[in-house]
């Protein structure tokens, strides 16, 4: 098992880094909406782009690219892969 401290929010991930989604700390509607896109617990996620001043992030999940608002990204908890 991973240590608690290894978990970070998606919003904190650097460009190019990937990891596995550990949990999504949001309301059911949000979690469902994300799950419909394949963004769900256990999915591999890769950070493609972050923007200045904590703007939205661009991520890749199962080969599809999505843009997520910053608030949403900070609710997605990720266990980053070892570098």
């Amino acid at each position: 098992m991973k240590e608690e401290k290894d978990k970070i929010s998606l919003a904190e991930m650097e460009d190019g880094r990937s990891g596995i989604i550990d949990s999504i700390a949001g309301g059911r509607n949000l979690v469902k909406r994300l799950a419909d896109l394949g963004i769900t617990r256990g999915a591999a996620i890769k950070m493609l782009r972050t923007t200045l001043f904590s703007g939205p992030v661009q991520v890749e999940v199962f080969g599809s690219r999505f843009v997520l608002g910053h608030g949403m990204a900070s609710k997605i908890i990720v266990i980053p892969d070892e570098r």
């Binding site: 059911r28 979690v31 469902k32 799950a35 419909d36 394949g38 769900t40 617990r41 199962f62």
Partner: peptide, 20 residues
């Protein structure tokens, strides 16, 4: 171990991954 509302959404995305 988590919200049952999401169990099926999880299930769907796993099935989709498996089919893929």
């Amino acid at each position: 171990g988590h919200d049952s509302g999401l169990v099926i959404a999880d299930e769907r995305s796993h099935l989709a991954a498996q089919i893929t």
